[in-house]
């Protein structure tokens, strides 16, 4: 017998999923969203996305190689996703240098300081985004108008997001029904014709991505459904109480990155809970915090903050929310 057998503990059958295949599943799901943002924001979207993705990959490579001293595997897709998501979370007229700073914070502080993929407690793209939002509030909240600014980058015409308009209006004592004339219709919101970050505008594209992710079993339904459900119920109750002061639930869901957050950010493997029960708690928490921040907080939208806050609770959720063990409760039904 010249050749030696391999001996290993069972199982000897290995599934097809790899980290790479799961990550590329997410990237494929992001393509429709990217396409729509390119359609609405054109040149700016292209520049922002490219800069963000390339700098995320470069930072990942450099940090893994020279600081962590590990063999870098930048093509595993995770840095690519972080770069894309960061781009999707910023306006299309953001100066290049700010994007690069965002990518450095996202990859460097959000991910690598904790030891790389799998060890970061917070969603890296959101860490980058929130850092930019706090550091560069002006640039981060000037939203280019869709379609008109297609061929413009830094010189794009800007306007407010629908949520911003409403928030400002309500502060000035205006009624919601009067404000509705200033903002796009629900249908327009659904296809993404509004001011906002690159990726947050197109509801339909994100739902396409969700369908793909669920079909490929990359994610489960628990987080998106519980998060959106909570937002619908919570804002629905407020809307029924006083439709003059509060927006309708559908409007809430379609604006301010709720869909983007629910489908792509909150479902990030690394920073979401391990059990289905935990995921539902996580989703409800995000939904609840989002509405609280939107209605009672200073920011017109609150998805990023809500997700980051709930990220911090994930270890706690994992500690106390356990799956139901087989045979734990004797069920002789």
């Amino acid at each position: 017998m010249s050749k030696l057998f391999t001996v290993s503990p069972s199982p000897h059958n290995y599934g097809k999923d790899t980290v790479r295949s799961l990550m590329y599943g997410v990237i494929i799901a992001l393509i429709p969203t990217l396409a729509i943002s390119l359609y609405f924001f054109g040149l700016g979207a292209l520049i922002v996305t490219l800069v963000s993705v390339v700098s995320a990959l470069i930072f990942e490579y450099l940090i893994t190689k020279f600081l962590l001293k590990k063999q870098p595997d930048i093509l595993d897709g995770s840095a690519l996703i972080t770069g894309l998501l960061l781009a999707f979370n910023v306006p299309s007229n953001l100066p290049i240098i700010i994007i690069i700073i965002g990518a450095l914070v996202a990859i460097g502080i959000g991910k690598m300081t904790f030891g790389g993929l799998g060890n970061n407690p917070f969603n890296p793209a959101l860490v980058g985004r929130v850092f930019l939002l706090i550091s560069f509030p002006v640039q981060m909240t000037s939203w280019p108008l869709p379609i008109q600014s297609r061929m413009h980058y830094l010189d794009a015409m800007t306007g407010a997001t629908p949520l911003g308009i409403v928030k400002e209006g309500i502060k000035n004592g205006e009624k919601v029904s009067d404000l509705m004339s200033q903002i796009p219709s629900h249908m327009q919101l659904f296809i993404g014709n509004m001011g906002g970050s690159l990726g947050e505008v197109a509801g339909i594209a994100i739902l396409l991505g969700l369908a793909w992710l669920l079909y490929k079993k990359v994610i489960t339904w628990h987080i998106p459904i519980s998060m959106i459900g909570t937002i619908v119920i919570f804002t629905g109750i407020l809307w029924l109480i006083n439709p003059d002061k509060y927006l309708d639930p559908l409007f809430h869901v379609l604006t301010g990155g709720v869909l983007l957050g629910a489908v792509f950010m909150a479902t990030d493997y690394v920073t979401s809970p391990m059990t289905h029960k935990g995921m539902i708690i996580f989703g409800i928490g995000i939904g609840f915090l989002t509405v609280i921040i939107r209605i009672f907080g200073a920011y017109p939208e609150g998805v990023s903050f809500a997700i980051l806050i709930m990220n911090a609770f994930v270890p706690l959720i994992n500690m106390y929310v356990k799956p139901k063990r087989f045979g734990e409760v004797i069920n002789n039904g």
């Binding site: 030696l4 391999t6 001996v7 290993s8 503990p9």
Partner: peptide, 13 residues
């Protein structure tokens, strides 16, 4: 060697 081990790197295992 009479075979190649391919598994967790732990003597007890």
């Amino acid at each position: 060697r009479t075979n190649n081990y391919d598994g967790a790197e732990n003597c007890t295992i």
